[in-house]
Amino acid sequence: MYAFNYHAPKTVRQAATLLAKNEDGKVLAGGQTLLPTMKQRLASPSALIDLNHAEGMSGIEQKGRNIVIGAMTRHADVATSAVVKNALPALAALAGGIGDPAVRNRGTIGGSIANNDPAADYPSAVLALGATIVTNKRKIAADDFFQGMFATALEEGEIIVKVSFPIPSKAAYEKFPNPASRYALVGVFVAKKGADVRVAVTGAGSNGVFRSKECEAALAARFNAKSLDGVKVSASGLNADMHASADYRAHLIPVMAKRAVDKALAK
């Protein structure tokens, strides 16, 4: 790790000011990606602006037909929240399956979404549920937020404050893990709200999380695993590495989608 300056702002506003002042400064949320990267000397920010002391950035509440989660809320808190487990159990289950207990006790929803790791779990839920990302400057719809691998709609000095998830009628997440890292090799989040069915896929796309139009079309007719029989997902644009070819990932998308639909209907 190289030397850096450390700031612990008390408010989001202070954090934004510090971010603007420090060229090459980085926002520190749970640090589960940033800190290991710095330790390996692969990242060398001039300053860390630590959000862990900023007020009002964590917490979970139900507001009408939405679950609103503060950006600094830990995965473990989402996983065990009575509010989330009751209204949006698929999201609690997803959070409970991220990394290991140490990661879940430090990692945050805002950090995960802002990082937009192509194999992270949260982006699939945000996209499939049609969540709204609330920043210190504006509200961004999920469909506009994720812009490719490690890329988002966040602008310079923009900080995620909270994420608002509309409560679906049915939802579930199924992850096929990379055997080594246990990140998603293919993770599929399915959500049904009224007639609207959305299927978001993480881990597979070479451009990050995406919606599977093939699966959505099949499920829009009838929200049942059988509807996905014979659905083929194109391998073009999917990742290929030593753990899985693009064809294997393409094959796994409807397989995981089926399992997610079964799980959603079982609830």
Binding site: P179, A180, S181, M242, H243
Partner: peptide, 23 residues
């Protein structure tokens, strides 16, 4: 079932961490 060291054609060890080497 799990473990396999993998060098690519350039002789770089691809499985040089637990992200890619399955214990």
């Amino acid at each position: 079932l799990l473990e396999g060291a993998h060098y690519n054609a350039d002789g770089q060890l691809v499985t040089a961490s637990y992200m890619d080497y399955t214990m």
